[in-house]
Nucleic acid binder design. Structure first.
Lengths: 309, 309
DNA sequence: TTTTTGTTATAGTTTTTACCTATATACCCT
DNA sequence: AGGGTATATAGGTAAAAACTATAACAAAAA
């Protein structure tokens, strides 16, 4: 197999019409160039150059191969240039997976900050259920993902980000919320609506119900936070919704009572995960830090950043 | 500078997602592949692969470089393939220069034969005055040329092709041609029209006039054989025209008398010329043979092929 | 003509590097 | 904990890419 060098040599000789001066301009010895050209010709099975003492010029075959060779070299230069810009790892496109119950409500808050800090970094974002996301990061479909804790496996690097309370929402007419608060014990026996079981939030709510004695109503299950919320608005029951969802503009406060449960640890935790041996794990962990800082700065009334774990 | 091999290696690893199996498929040892990849990465200044025991996959940067690398390889394959077809020298495009007083009247007769014999050979034909053609072959603007003899220089390979008589043409009403023949002596004092002096034919006719005592009329000079012929038709005088021109369909026999001069060597000779050290001189000389044979076969009434000189 | 000069090819060496085998190291899985 | 598998490293060899020196040759100059 020929080398890019040899092709470059060929190109230079074609340009200068002389092996001698081409060798000078390439900064190599003339015999080296002669033999390299000879081996290139041998490999290609074609005589490229018409050697003579006066001028060395292209053969008809060489003339036709030259443009292809030139294109090859320019393609190589392009690859070099691209590698150069990518050598700053923060200049490449990273694939980020997000769960549907978090992404739309969190990303608008943090993506601008990320682009501000790493101005040439690009994100390719896709939504998927957390269970699939975890495997997706492992098998390389994603470079990093936002995921609720705990994870199934333990093979991934995990940067815990923040704690997000789940708020009980109830129809106005239910009159549950005197002052927007409820004590944990009052949950006991209450019938709670949730998302369908393919969502991680389903399990999370299930655990909370088991702990507090509430009852998970499986007759009606939402397929998204929006449909779940709509079911509450229509008076079909109460539900736990993530604080970030409620904070987002999708929520219209006049339609629902939002109730904070006192005394109970009703929340979920989110982390940024990526492969342990990703060469850019330092970048990812600084993105995690950036997210925590952003949360602390702009959303500390809603979520609790976790800096040390 | 990286090598094409290394890029191919990179491509294979990306495909198999494993250094081990890529090494197998490439037929090299695994450590070789590891080090080659490392040097490629060092040269590019970018980490291309995320090594791990489970699967080795691309980094974000590697993912973006892979398509460019793949294109580079495919470009190389293209170059190889082209070289392969060109390795048969008769499959390339050769640049042929012809003089305006010969090309249009000879080429239609010989080009089909050339393509029949060398079916993948292509010709790029241009017309230029012989004086420029000779230099054009020397400096590489042409690969070969048809030229009238004698040549100025002696640095080119010359394959003499054939002798072409020059015929005297006269207006019908001049009544010069009793039986289409004239003896050399009768030319003496006759006023002959010619082409302008940039054409080689001008000099040739001039020499003939000097030898036979005819007088070259420089008051009216044609810029092409067609205008010269037209001047004769219009009764402005007589002229020498090449036999191949007269034989071509451009000539309409009813308009002119064509007169053969007896006893005098009134002709020009044509040769195929090319650079001495052209790597394809054997091809060119067999093209010369082909032309001679074609002349002998189809035009022996007009021209005299010259096989031995 | 002969000499000089400049260009390419060849010979002989050195240095580099691509490749190998053997082994270390790390991780996964049972 | 240990066997199995993947990659990395070490050390050595052989191929090839580089150099210097020189031959061979053609063109230009003397």
């Amino acid at each position: 197999m020929a080398t890019l060098k040899q092709i470059q040599y060929f190109q230079m000789v074609a340009e200068t019409q002389s092996i001698r001066s081409a060798a000078d301009r390439l900064g190599i010895a003339q015999p080296t160039l002669s033999t390299q050209l000879a081996t290139l010709e041998k490999n290609l099975g074609v005589t490229l150059l018409e050697r003579s003492r006066r001028v060395t010029q292209l053969t008809p075959a060489g003339r036709q191969l030259l443009p292809v060779a030139a294109q090859l070299i320019s393609q190589w230069r392009e690859l070099e240039a691209l590698a150069n810009t990518l050598s700053d790892t923060a200049a490449t496109t990273h694939r980020l997976g997000v769960p549907p119950t978090l992404g739309p409500y969190l990303l608008p808050n943090i993506v601008p900050s990320i682009h501000e800090r790493f101005d040439r970094l690009k994100l390719y974002v896709r939504e998927e259920p957390p269970t699939q996301l975890e495997g997706g990061v492992l098998d390389g479909r994603y470079d990093l993902a936002l995921l609720p804790l705990p994870l199934r496996g333990d093979k991934l690097a995990v940067d815990v980000l923040f704690r997000e309370p789940l708020m009980l929402v109830a129809p106005k007419e239910a009159g549950l919320a005197r002052d927007g608060k409820l004590r944990e014990e009052q949950l006991s026996g209450m019938s709670i609506m949730g998302l369908d079981e393919r969502h991680q939030l389903h399990q999370e709510v299930q655990r909370i119900c088991e702990r507090t004695g509430a009852k998970l109503n499986r007759d009606y299950e939402g397929t998204s936070l929006d449909t779940l919320r709509q079911m509450v608005v229509m008076g079909m029951g109460v539900a736990f919704l993530p604080a970030l969802y409620i904070r987002s503009e999708i929520h219209r406060p006049e339609e629902l009572d939002v109730i904070h449960i006192e005394g109970a640890a009703i929340y979920r935790e989110h982390a940024l995960v990526y492969r342990q041996n990703s060469p850019v794990r330092r970048l990812y962990s600084s993105i995690a830090t950036l997210i925590r800082e952003r949360m602390a700065h702009a959303m500390s009334d809603v979520v609790t950043p976790i800096f040390d774990r």
